[in-house]
Design a protein around this nucleic acid. Sequence first.
DNA 1: CTAGGGTTAG
Length: 876
Amino acid sequence: MRLFPLPLLSHVRGLVLRTPSPRMYAVPSLAFTNSTVSHSDQSKEGNFDDVKSLELNEVGVLRVLTTMRDDPYLALSFLKRIEGNGGLPSVSAYAAVIRIVCSWSLDEKLSCLFVGMIRKGEEKCGFSVVDLLNVIGDAEEDEKLCFLLLSRVSSALVKAYVEIEMFDEAIELFRGIEELGWDADAYTYVVVVNALFRKGDSEGVEKFLRKLVSLETRKHCVFYMDLIEGLCGNEMSRVGYILLKPLREANILVDESDLAVAYGRVIRGLCNEMKLEEAERALLEMEECGIDPDVCVYSAIIEGHRKNMCFSKALRFFNNRKDLQGKRIINPVIASSILQCCCQMGEFSEALDRFVDFRNMNIPLDRFCYNVAFDALIKLGKVDKAIELFREMTCEGISPDVVNYTTLIGGCCLHGRCVEALDLIIEMDKEGKPPDIVTFNVLAGGFARNAADASDILKLMEDRGVKPSSVTHNMVIQGLIVAGKIKEAEALYQEHNKSGGNVAGIVKGYCEAGRLDKAFERFIKEEFPLPKSVYFTLFTSLCAAKDKNHIDKAQKVVERMWELGVEPGKSMYGKLIGAWCRVSDVGKAEKFLKAMKRREITPDLFTYTILIKTCCRLNKLEQADDFFRDMKKRGIKPDVVTYTVLAKNNPKIDKDMKACDVKPDVFYYTTMINTYYRLNNENKACALVQEMKKGGIVPDVVTYTALIDNYYRLNNKKRASDIFQEMKRRRILPDVVTYTVLLNHNPELDKKKEMKALGIKRDVHYYTVLIHHKCKIGEVEEAKRIFQEMKESGVKPDFVSCTALIAGCLRNGYVFDADKFLQEMRENGIEPPTETASKSVVLHTKSKPKRFVSRQRSKKPILRSSGEVQSSLLIS
DNA sequence: CTAGGGTTAG
């Protein structure tokens, strides 16, 4: 942790204003005679080489140092040089240098000096730190000056101790300073808090802070502002946050704007440290005190969530803030964060809608916002619109920069519009914003993947003096493979792979082209370590695949990295185990886990949680328990997520969780409550609802939906609809699942309009309930129509929905339709059902593919074969 | 280098 520099503090204290010239090693030989040195002599000649031979006596050294009063760097190097030559500067020499350095406010240098001294040790120095302080003190006659000097020196010493992690010494020394009534500045306090913090002494921190705001030791407002700045600038925003409340209550920050600044700083600090929950809490607190947060606070929180990959949290925050909806205070920074969130979630149309909204609200938008917007258009395949928007931006007076152009050029290339891409390059030249290497790389790669001649672009680059790099070649090679031009890719590879960096393009190209086996084949042949991104791309593609064969290969990638001594990223282990879990092969996962342990790699919380979840899903409860014990044994503390997974099968785990001081949240309670209802223990479930509310945890849509579902299951329609009303009263909007539950228990009530009004799209679950119901009451035509409607609205049928329809057709004698849909299902390679919801189906469909094949081959009348299918499908 | 949790359908 770096404590320096603290620019604001230095500034406030009026430091660093006088900066001596950084002249370091030009040193006069005259210094070694006992005569006085004049400044004009200093640069004349020589160095300190004669120090050893000269046997400078103490008086001599001191006298020389006196002449260096105006040049602290010179004094420092003089001292260093004496030491370097095996000399032993006296305590007085040190004292003299320190006084010089101090008078120039070079606090950092001072600390360095102390660090060196402490490292060297008392023995080797010939004096102790206390000796030194005494000498320094004695040499200053003016009491007031002495006071100041010692304060500053001890502060630097405290800092030095912290820097070499001698926390106790630092704290002790600081207490000494306090007792003597010396004046330590805010910066020193920051250092001491840092020491306590790093020692893990949270009680000490609190005590320290309490004292700091107590009446006897109260300081000036500026001090506290500096303190907060220092804490937040050094990753101790939490401490800064703790400080706010007492400061406010003791009315120390009288000026409201100071309080606003302090809160703002703490919130921004918390966001930087990714402590978003606390940041939001601080924001609430701030508002409760009647302080208006400024726009930077909002953008910090939104951007913090985004960087944390919590996109929906960012959006939720934005949507729920009234003042942000009041449009008044949205600035381009917030706007671009929000747009980017949408894009990173893959919601490109949403991003565009919001962009348009922003624009209609007359919010000033900058080229960052525009860039996200036309990138979104490109991702949606609307290149023309993207170009249009690009032009509009220019009309709005924002002239595009190289990045804007590059985005657009990449977009053109991605959609096969190389000519336009090239036109844009020409335009860039005309506008005096010549393309850089990134632009050219994008263009060359884009040409290649569109089967255009990328070598033209390479030539163009050369002519321009932009030298193609290995990145360029990789992008072209990758593009060629994507375009299916394997031979050309290989040729280019042969030509440029001298440094060995271009397999990347080959492997990535095959990955992108979906030819994972080919990619793996090339990869495994390489004898030498590859760039990390290659391992990662290949590994990720293999992991994402559905069959075990590919996951096996993903594992080989990791093993290869081990062999070659390339450190796989931490996340790769967890991802691989996650992949094995996804295909329900806990055996393989466990085997790999053992290999990890042999390498002394401890699986992390995520990994254990995935394993436990999978075991629970597969009903291997003892094994889940084994993992649970194992993680505890290894000192990995299960968190609320782990407990949620366990609670699904074993609600009694609640005791253990509370014993471990893990706080339940709304997810956890929802699971628990649901589990107890399923176990027919309504009392316990109700008790939990109360406990949750008492604990200040607010039930959300999911909780309410679960409650509604469970009361319908208990045949208590009244209670179910009461809960639905309560939910509405609390302004918690139902979602598609809520409506699915309602529909499932009241199949006649398709609340199509109501949903539309709320902007809720019907999903595959919802349609399935509809289809199933229509089939059940014999309205197969209607079911077919709904199935069609579903497809037309862009909702992909899945295994369950198809099965429902086919079964319904068969049951009602629509044999031809059943066959038609069956075939359609096969053609679409319908994904197998996922997760627990369809566990029973998985079990029953294991033998299904065979039957499908035999049916196809036999070409016998549909009736018979459908009968076969029927037997496997109609198990309820 | 975006890995883990809650509610719904046959």
